[in-house]
Design a protein around this nucleic acid. Structure first.
Lengths: 332, 332
DNA sequence: CTGAAAGCGCTTACAG
DNA sequence: CTGAAAGCGCTTACAG
């Protein structure tokens, strides 16, 4: 049998209430009592039973992080940062892979894992965030990433339109004239980043060419490689490509290398996310670099604040700082 | 107040025992009773409280996966696979980043999180596995990766000596004469893979040259790039490099590209792990490819079997199948 | 500060 | 199959 609170109390010669007070850092405990209790805890190697505690308190100090896939570098790096940020606050993160499936996303929102978790940080892919209503989840929820107008949850995200505008403008400033986009489509990331892309073209007096906007089926290297092949098969191939994430860009670079084209001389490439692979690739990848630590820290803080009952009915929206990291793939 | 078991029982007109029986799939329930109960569960949107359940049963159906860092692609891919394998069995995985720190590893082994988890899958870095004793952890534990002789836990790992032997032999078969190794050092991975490397050299009648064995400070791209720079500064640089993981190899490839050297013509490169980055890199990376799905599935199965009380005092040791994937970095 | 006691929501012998 | 009840290990009013 594991040692219990009452064993500690007996050994320290105090009541269970006092032991509980010590563990939970309540005030009004004399240093002498505290020392006695701590000695007993150490002697018995006592560890509180978290199931009992959370059953009683109705709080578990667990939060869920629901992401499409943790094998994907951006989400892996983000998950690592969020785990660290939560741990600093005494919170444990359960990571759930939805694999972009509606059913799995629904499951998470359904208050997954019974009543175990206190709240959810949710990076949606299949579920259009606009369709979420607070009835879908009894739990506090913080949304990561794009959200169409009218959302009703707290959110932390980069200004994807502005960042995409900056990325495209960088390509224009290099004197490129046929600038393609890989990763358009859908109502989320693809739509929002295309908006910034088109806006930059328009600002420069350039028309957007639908033939240069590639949708693909996903956001992996495979998709980027395939889209780039399509672009190269065009009568007039592009001289620059803005890929809506780094994985697409790395796939595109692979296709360009296979085709014997020089980067950035023949084709300049920009990505989005700043995953570590891109920094070490040859050529290194120019990319939009969101501050992931900032994102993680603020997403956790926002959720905990909401769990604590703050925030009321306002839907807070935090904008993640970013920089455009200019590297070899655009001549940097 | 959330709906409870007793609410469901009241609505279905049965006892709580019967509801519990339905939920836990006990036999001897008529189809009619089951249907009544399930209708009530659906109508009330009832979800069992896992804290209460695990408090009562003494089992949580949670296991911990302790890895050095989830931002690292190999561990991210492994974590994803283990999460999936566990979910198939109704088990939830808590992922813990130890960041290779002794204290954090110790914390995990200490039966982390109170009595929440039922067992641990542990990929050690700082803690020499040989030093572990079963007294360190009250929980069933499965070790991942290298283990010096004398370990006393169940383990799942590739035969690193043999795999390193194969990788090095492949380089020898290409006619290379100065074959370097990056990632030697320590008592774990570095030591074991060096053993296979030296063994292959010896089998081919070649002497190993200490000057060609680079230790570095870690297993990241940064370390691989730095080690490769050291090798290129040698009076007689190598014509082939066996890197003890893919990240090191990708860093080395970056240095080679910067130096204007051709791969594999000037220097052939082999990695270990088969992470996705290597497959898409230019040149694509020849590497030892462990079957990660097999590893994940068997690690989870082994742990659950141990949790169920099986296995006795035998220390089971499972060997993960692998292949050598020959790609462009060695001319494949 | 202490002590005795209730109760969080389950599962599980127990008697029928 | 059912029903009444105990108990998992905590936290928290409550009375002192």
């Amino acid at each position: 049998m594991a040692t219990r609170l009452s064993d500690v109390a007996a050994r320290a010669g105090v009541s269970v209430k006092t032991v509980s007070n010590v563990i939970n850092d309540y005030p009004h405990i004399t240093a002498r009592t505290r020392a006695k209790v701590e000695a007993a805890i150490a002697a018995l190697d006592y560890k509180p039973n978290v199931s009992a505690r959370s059953l009683r308190k109705g709080r578990s100090d667990f939060i869920a992080l629901a992401i499409p896939e943790m094998g994907s570098p951006y989400f892996a790096e983000l998950g690592a940062a969020i785990s660290r940020a939560a741990k600093r606050r005494g919170i444990t993160v359960l990571i759930d892979q939805t694999e972009g499936e509606s059913a799995a996303e629904r499951f998470v929102l359904d208050g997954m894992r019974g009543q175990l978790i206190d709240g959810i940080i949710f990076s949606p892919l299949a579920t259009a965030p606009a369709k979420l209503t607070s009835a879908d989840t009894g739990k506090p929820l913080v949304l990561l990433g794009e959200r169409p107008a009218g959302g009703q949850f707290d959110r932390v995200a980069v200004d994807s339109v502005q960042a995409s505008y900056d990325a495209t403008t960088h390509l224009i400033s290099l004197g490129r004239h046929r600038i393609a986009a890989i990763g358009v489509g859908g109502t989320g990331t693809g739509a929002v980043r295309r908006k910034g892309y088109r806006k930059a073209l328009k600002a420069a007096g350039m028309a957007h060419d639908p033939v240069l906007e590639l949708a693909g089926t996903g956001y992996h290297r495979l998709d980027g490689a395939a889209s780039m092949r399509e672009l190269l098969a065009l009568p007039e191939p592009p001289d620059a490509v803005f890929c809506f994430n780094d994985l697409l860009a790395l796939g595109a670079l692979r296709t360009l290398a296979d085709a014997g084209l020089r980067v950035p001389d023949d084709v300049a490439v920009v990505g989005f996310d700043d995953i570590e692979d891109g920094r070490y690739h040859s050529p290194s990848l120019t990319t939009v670099s969101p501050d992931k630590e900032w994102l993680a820290d603020n997403a956790v803080a926002l959720l905990l604040d909401r769990i604590a009952g703050n925030g009321g009915s306002t839907h807070r929206d935090l904008t993640v700082p970013y920089t455009l990291e200019i590297r070899e793939s655009t001549g940097g």
